[in-house]
Design a protein around this nucleic acid. Structure first.
Length: 271
DNA sequence: CTTTTGACCTGACAGC
DNA sequence: TGCTGTCAGGTCAAAA
């Protein structure tokens, strides 16, 4: 479910309830997520203070006294702040109890999410070492994208969804950004001119910023830290709109499969 | 090295 | 009602 705007929305929602507070317990009801949660993790984190809550790509990072808790929401995950005595629902796999009275609760039906602990520097962690720049940072420029695309034969949509190139861009926002930039998703990456790279960088940044402003996109089940959906779905131009009229030209939106993912575009507006 | 494919899971929905 | 097949916001590891 969650791409960068949804993770950012979650991050902003939970941070005020976490930062500066102490973890007084952790309950793991289901250890089998993307990677098994270590049996001794609750004892590792209990008693620690939460110093910061930040986002890197689609990962959430909770820095504690002696290390960092890395959370990922996978396809169907969400995090909420609830009272500690709220009965757990189906798929409520992990609770991080805060000050004994509230808890940060991970809900994830498909279990593609993850809870990972690292005592070392996060930037050196296997999962983070090779990540590309944040798309909303000054490091993500037309020059950078053009350089990384220059020798690639994969299609441009696959390239911008590659976290080693740029983080946070998933299936929805890749489709939307390519529409906004007027670029066909199936175009070979090495065929993209420098000016078109510039358009694409701007489009990615615009769509992510607008989606963050709307609290993310709720297609099925995304909710923020307080349980509310995101409202960006109403602003989608192509994603999940197969056969419907293009908002710019009226031609029906097409759907094709690339690398096993549905890809939506307007064959008239995108070349 | 890059690119492609399979794998991991549950649930919703369409069609029979 | 209930079965089967398809699809879904991600991404890692192995194969090609």
């Amino acid at each position: 479910m969650p791409e960068l705007p949804e993770v950012e929305t979650t991050c902003r929602g939970i941070a005020p309830h976490c930062v500066g507070h102490r973890i007084t317990g952790m309950v793991v009801r289901q250890h089998r997520l993307r990677w098994p949660i270590p049996r001794n993790l609750p004892q590792q984190v209990t008693g620690s203070k939460i110093h910061t809550v930040t986002r890197r790509g689609k990962y959430l990072l909770l820095t504690l006294d002696h290390g960092t808790l890395i959370l990922h929401l996978g396809m169907s995950g969400s995090l909420r702040i609830v009272d500690a005595d709220t009965p757990a629902d189906k798929h409520d796999h992990v609770d991080i109890i805060i000050n004994g009275k509230r808890c940060l609760r991970l809900h994830d039906p498909r279990r593609f999410g993850a809870v990972v602990w690292t005592a070392g520097a996060v930037t050196q962690h296997k999962l983070f070492k090779h990540l590309g720049p944040e798309p909303l940072s000054e490091l993500f420029t037309d020059a950078y994208l053009h350089e990384r695309a220059r020798k690639r034969t994969c299609n441009i949509k696959t390239l911008i969804m590659n976290a080693n190139i740029v983080v946070g861009v998933g299936n929805i926002y890749a489709c939307e950004a390519l529409f906004m930039a007027g670029i066909r998703p199936t175009l070979r990456a090495d065929k993209l001119s420098r000016p078109r790279c510039a358009r694409l960088v701007i489009a990615i940044q615009d769509v992510l910023r607008q989606a963050i402003k709307a609290g993310g996109t709720t297609l099925r089940d995304f909710t923020d830290g307080d349980g509310n959906p995101g409202y960006f779905k109403q602003q989608l131009h192509v994603y999940d709109r197969e056969g419907q009229a293009c908002h710019q030209c009226g031609h029906p939106v097409k759907r094709v499969i690339t690398v096993n993912r549905s890809t939506y575009y307007c064959s008239h507006c995108q070349r």
